[in-house]
């Protein structure tokens, strides 16, 4: 494997978010394709990070830096990938549902998904069902991720899914939910496509969802 791709992998593992742009440019200048940089440089680095994290040898702040490094490189690669017709891994639309202001978990999901190579749009907190619908039409995501911390606000997830159905866009997306009070049976009950117990699981679930579709 080329030296520059190895150093890109290492930069991801070490979370060198400020150096990764330069390295990405260097790889392109050396004639590496955007596709190879993504699949032979960035992805192996993130896979390594993910394994280390699952084994308890890396920690959230470190994973966040790696994910941010990945995202910084993707900013450069994205137009090139589109240009050459390489399919992007996918788009994720995120938000904490109506009435709920908690967002650390949802932010983690966003960063983990970025790290997995997704393009992420975050609608923020207390997102109205209608705002989700508008964003689905505009951003055209593959996945809609909803978060809630409170048992009182988790029912907004069901409302949002209904709003997507009523607007006729439910079939265009997969719906993924998460948050402390949420579980698989609740996901089944409201007709969500998937549930993830934490942020690391969420990016894995997201990857599976886009593979299926």
């Amino acid at each position: 494997m080329s030296e520059v791709l190895t150093s890109i992998s290492n930069a991801i593992i070490q979370g060198k978010k400020d150096d990764i742009g330069e390295l990405t440019q260097k790889a392109l200048d050396e004639g590496q394709s955007a596709q190879d940089i993504l699949y032979k440089g960035l992805m192996p680095g993130m896979d390594h990070v993910s394994d280390k994290f699952k084994a308890g040898d890396m920690f959230v702040p470190e994973v966040m830096r790696s994910a941010r490094s990945m995202a910084n490189s993707m900013k450069i690669l994205k137009p090139l990938l589109i240009e050459t017709g390489v399919a992007m891994i996918g788009k994720v639309l995120l938000g904490t549902v109506k009435g709920d202001l908690h967002d650390i978990g949802k932010n983690l999901v966003g960063m983990m998904c970025e790290g997995a190579g997704f393009e992420v749009k975050d609608l923020g907190i207390s997102v109205e069902p209608e705002a989700f619908v508008e964003a689905v039409k505009e951003f055209e995501p593959d996945i809609v991720g909803m978060s809630a911390l409170l048992t009182t606000t988790m029912r907004s997830m069901g409302d949002t899914i209904k709003a997507l159905e009523e607007a006729g866009v439910r079939d265009r997306v997969k719906v993924m939910i998460g948050g402390a009070p949420v579980n698989q049976s609740f996901a089944d009950k409201i007709g969500a496509d998937a549930y993830a117990p934490d942020a690391a699981a969420a990016s894995d679930v997201a990857k599976k969802l886009v593979k299926k579709s």
């Binding site: 308890g56 920690f59 959230v60 702040p61 470190e62 966040m64 830096r65 941010r68 932010n107 983690l108 960063m111 117990p197 934490d198 699981a201």
Partner: peptide, 27 residues
């Protein structure tokens, strides 16, 4: 989570268990 301050201290301020399980139920 991105703060340099967090990075500087999260390993020394927190104790990490070897045996106590803190994973979520599914894991």
């Amino acid at each position: 989570l991105y703060e340099e301050h967090t990075h500087r201290y999260f390993k020394t301020e927190f104790w990490y268990p070897n045996l106590c399980d803190r994973h979520n139920f599914e894991e």
